[in-house]
Amino acid sequence: MPAAADWSDRSRELAQLLARAGLGDRAAFATLYERTSAHLFAVVLRINRDRAQAEDILQEVYVNVWRSAQSFDAAQSQPLTWLTSVARNRAIDSLRRAQSQPQIQAAPTSGGDDAEDTDVYDKLADDSAGPLELLSRASDARALTHCMEGLSAPQRQSVALAFFDGLSHAEVADQLQQPLGTVKSWVRRALMALKGCLEAAVQRDVAGRG
């Protein structure tokens, strides 16, 4: 199961490839692309669902990575974290430009049975995993599991919609049919709870080793 542990395992090799690409090594850059493009494409396509646009974004991302590989600092960031951040930023920027076009379909509102605690987003015609399912998969990483469990269901759901699908606060509010202020505070509290929890987990790790 892919999880945060893999994330760091892959780092050393990717850092070397990035360093070599920074020196102008095309073969290293090609290998870097081979190892990371499917991941970055999944991230981008999740945010911008237009496949042609997503491929354009991916192209821009890698051209930029080639040009700025020299500035990557392995002491400061993990390579996959850096690459994923670059890709996410590009994808989010592309939404800004295409804002006049609707990015999301309206949630099915039939029935209105509030007792149902399912994620409406999962019902959309899309065979990929819903944001909540993704969060629970991410939770396989030890620390994240624990921390995600600490979030309330609406907190989890709003963070998932914002993070995986690139929805703005207002779009999350639309999606969940909740007031904007409520959604903002769910996201904020979820992020802060996550931070506190992950930091505590790191400290436990350190204490456990020492």
Partner: peptide, 25 residues
Amino acid sequence: WQDRLMPLTATLAPLPPSPQVWQRI
């Protein structure tokens, strides 16, 4: 924050882009 949140994306199923993307790069 990137260190905290980016590992969440590890759960997305990898999706290879079309070969044209690499050719254009």
